[in-house]
């Protein structure tokens, strides 16, 4: 096998070719992102004169404009509020259900697990019309609470999928010992089992955060007042209004994306685990 041979030599010609290819594609990914970043520090005039130029000074004027004039301060707050609360709600209810479904077999438990798992593959957005009408009837259209409930519901299948597998792995002895000491099911769950699946909880929480932060379909339809809009849906209006102010447009892209990049840097492990769940050894 050539791989083996390559490992023995110090740095071969093949190695050089591989790294050249890898760096080449890294450039295809990174250059557009860096160009966006660089252009936030240039004026729109400079961008129009030389679209691919380098910034001449470090300044954050465009970010201030996006933040204040284009209401990104409001959108950012809404995105954070809606995403964080949805993730917390989904993770909490899923942990409870996953514990029972992962640890016990009872009448209907298998059916319930498949019922939740079916949601992994369903295109739920297609149910937007009945969902809209239902939320309208209970006064949850144009309400952040409405979006939070819908988002939390979309997170349930994946969270139960991951968490039930983790709960299933925990040894029985711990729970048994606590039970002998007179602990009830809720105490066993909260004080013994839940702390043991903390890594899985982190994976589930981080992994739900990304699509919810990015979504603009539900807020576009469910939120009317601009003061309740999230970043993603705010972008759609912003792009029309600031059409000629490219410097601010680029800043808007950065503000919307930065929290995700930071999250990715902090939680690479969780995100990769979530993406590849169910694959491997």
């Amino acid at each position: 096998m050539r791989n083996q041979a390559v490992k023995k030599r110090k740095f071969s010609f093949a190695d050089f070719g591989i790294y050249a290819l890898l760096w080449g594609y890294a450039a295809v990914v990174l250059l557009p992102l860096l160009l966006v970043l660089g252009n936030t520090m240039r004026t729109t005039r400079q961008i129009f004169q030389e679209p691919a130029g380098l910034p001449t000074s470090i300044n954050f004027d465009s970010y201030v404009r996006a933040w204040q004039e284009a209401s990104f301060n409001i959108y950012f707050f809404n995105s954070l509020l809606i995403t964080v609360l949805s993730v917390l709600l989904a993770t909490a209810v899923s942990a409870l259900a996953a514990y029972i479904l992962g640890r016990y077999i009872f009448f209907g438990s298998k059916f319930l697990l498949s019922f939740f798992m079916a949601g992994l593959m369903m295109p739920f957005r297609l149910a937007i019309v009945p969902l809209f009408m239902m939320l309208n009837n209970i006064g949850l259209v144009d309400s952040r609470m409405g979006v939070i409930l819908v988002y939390a519901a979309t997170g349930v299948p994946f969270s139960i999928f991951i968490l039930s597998a983790f709960f299933r792995q925990l040894p029985q002895e711990l729970a048994e010992a606590a039970r002998i000491d007179g602990a009830g099911e809720f105490r066993i769950f909260g004080q013994i089992m839940l702390p043991l699946v903390r890594p899985a909880l982190a994976t589930v929480a981080v992994f739900q955060f990304v699509p919810l932060w990015n979504d603009f379909f539900y807020p576009l339809i469910l939120l009317r007042s601009t003061e309740k809009w999230t970043l993603a849906v705010g972008m759609t209006r912003f792009f029309g209004e600031f059409q000629t102010d490219w410097s601010t447009l680029f800043a808007g892209l950065v503000i919307t994306t930065l929290p995700l990049i930071i999250l990715f840097l902090l939680a690479t492990k969780q995100i990769i685990t979530g993406l590849t769940a169910g694959i491997g050894k």
């Binding site: 709600l89 989904a90 909490a92 209810v93 899923s94 409870l96 259900a97 514990y99 029972i100 479904l101 319930l112 939740f116 949601g119 369903m122 739920f124 149910a127 009945p130 969902l131 239902m134 409930l149 819908v150 939390a152 519901a153 979309t154 349930v156 299948p157 139960i160 099911e185 769950f189």
Partner: peptide, 15 residues
């Protein structure tokens, strides 16, 4: 244990 997730998922997704 099951009801919160079941309700949320059924009311806002399945129904």
């Amino acid at each position: 244990f099951l009801l919160p997730a079941f309700m949320l998922y059924t009311i806002f997704m399945i129904w």
